[in-house]
Design a protein around this nucleic acid. Structure first.
Lengths: 336, 336
DNA sequence: CTGAAAGCGCTTACAG
DNA sequence: CTGAAAGCGCTTACAG
């Protein structure tokens, strides 16, 4: 079965390929093609199961109707959810999404960008890691629309959609303080990424305001890292600081490691230790007790990121930069 | 910054575009191009940051060096793991992977196939759902390489790589019997897909052999379905059949719903109820007690699926059909 | 109202 | 050892 092209249809219909192209792209009427011809062409296209070649049309127009999505790790629930919503949103608008994960080697991130560039995606949505600032600058130079999500670079003027991390951490910590905890620890990673800094700052500010600050209550876990190491680091940390009565974990995998530790050490939550984690996860809802979390407005973030990106793909709005913050939601469960 | 093409390089180097093309594709030596010219062209390409247009080369060659991957639901851990390994394997061979999820509407599955076809993928890896048999037949007619994973259609002669579901269910059930359980329930879904049938048959055969069969010990949960419904169905089922002392859950999301039920009903595992589930999941390892599971050889399945697919993409092996079964692994934890 | 033709950026058979 | 040219399947400015 050979591939049906626009030419086959033109032959069959006895018209030129231009006419077929106009009809197929629903420009028939605009180009003043007679209703009879339009119908004939459409019927034949259907009869022959004609599928336009995206490749050929991309080559001609320079557009692929696709966007590249680079996330930190697609196997992390947070990112796979995000990806799913983005795919849906983009799909509604007729855009395909090409995913990829940065994985563990930040050095490879520019290669991902290059390969998406080579695939000629029309725009990018990225959760950037530290080393990507340069890659993103390059995209801007190439005039490629880019929207960052989850984090961004403070000194770069690029559209982004993120949660209000400072506020979310501030509220979560405030909630722990209000619940009577006095030695509230923080578990962060060492990535230094801006969203992590802001979360830490939210925690620190409210803790200091309440005169509860204690530097040794803060743990940084190397990033990236394996779960085993996270578990052993947190265990060591809790053993060394027995006065800690609550912990705020700044990402879901840190929180999950925390649950393992609690389990291993036989601690009672929240009696021995209260827990709040950023990002929701299946295991947080299933755990006994269920875990209080800061839920990110994933859906809103994804929807708006796509919207902004689409805006940047039409010429008039090309230069507009939108910086959006969405509020997180403290989901109160049983762990505090 | 304009797009650099082969022509720019040819101009700069003072050679023809053919020469450039040969060099870029590492056919320079074979075509007898002088080492000096090769070096010159390569240097210029690098200096200008030349990136070949995949689109143009695809249009010309008819190959895209990409494969389409259709999974049941990318947000399910099992499938996202599978996707990740497949992406890695394919990546090693210079192939890009386009994912998509069938989601909840089986009727849309043919559209996914069509859109991947339109994107001109060179081959397909699919976890088919019931309604896809026809779509897959179409792919075969179009001479597109296809490898099915996780399940297949009994009457269709298509390459596939699956776990030995019958054996895995048989062993898991045998293990429950050996551990002294007498009223072993089975929770299946109503999809009727072959892997589910085989798992059920493995269970049934060994149960009958031991004279433990009881039809009311088998529950079918509508497919597809929401977690809440799964939880309430399982709850009703366990309440109605109080003699049940062990349950074999045939997928990870059934097992997870089962854990919710156990939690809600306040049952002690394994004292009140022993549990084994198919497919591993983070929550199974974190749960107290940890849950015994049938782990699928994900990595092996993914690797071999890619291997077979690649084989089918070279002409000589085009027609070869490989049907492969891999053994599952019973991971013994604390829930039995 | 419709067609002939150029061109997107490549690859490759052919010629010399 | 290297180049001129055809062609992949489209879109679109131009002509009539």
């Amino acid at each position: 079965m050979k591939k049906i092209t626009i030419k086959d249809i033109a032959n069959e219909a006895g018209v030129s390929i231009s006419t077929v192209s106009f009809v197929i792209n629903d420009k028939g009427e605009k180009m003043g093609i007679s209703a009879a011809v339009i119908k004939k062409v459409k019927d034949i296209a259907e009869k022959l199961y004609y599928r336009p070649s995206m490749i050929a049309s991309s080559l001609r127009t320079g557009k692929t109707r696709s966007i590249g999505l680079i996330v930190e790790d697609i196997s992390n629930h947070f990112f796979s959810q995000l990806a799913r919503v983005i795919e849906n949103e983009a799909g509604k608008l007729g855009y395909r999404v090409f995913y990829c994960s940065i994985g563990n080697d930040d050095n490879e991130s520019d290669e991902l960008v290059q390969s998406l560039l080579q695939a000629n995606v029309d725009g990018f949505i990225i959760t950037p890691t530290k080393l990507m600032e340069q890659s993103i600058d390059n995209l801007l130079k190439l005039n490629k629309p880019v929207v960052l999500i989850d984090r961004y670079f403070a000194n770069q003027n690029v559209s982004h959609v993120v949660m209000d991390n400072y506020e979310a951490a501030y509220s979560a910590t405030q909630y722990l303080i209000n619940s009577g905890y006095q030695n509230i620890a923080l578990v962060n990673n060492s990535s230094g990424m801006i969203q992590m800094q802001l979360r830490e700052k939210g925690y620190t500010d409210v803790i200091k305001k309440n005169n509860l600050f204690n530097e040794s209550n803060i743990l940084y876990i190397d990033y990236p890292n394996e779960e085993e190491n996270r578990v052993s680091e947190i265990t060591k940390f809790l053993k060394k600081n027995p006065k800690i009565d609550a912990v705020l974990f700044l990402t879901n995998y840190l929180g999950l490691a925390g649950l393992h530790v609690v389990k291993n050490m036989g601690l009672q939550v929240p009696k021995d230790l209260a827990i709040v984690s950023f990002d929701d996860h299946y295991s947080f809802r299933l755990n006994t007790p269920t875990i209080t979390v800061v839920e990110q407005p994933l859906e809103e973030i994804a929807v708006q990121a796509v919207e902004i990106l689409m805006g940047q793909m039409v010429d008039e709005k090309k230069g507009e930069v939108h910086k959006v913050m969405k509020k997180g939601k403290l989901v109160i469960r049983e762990s505090v």
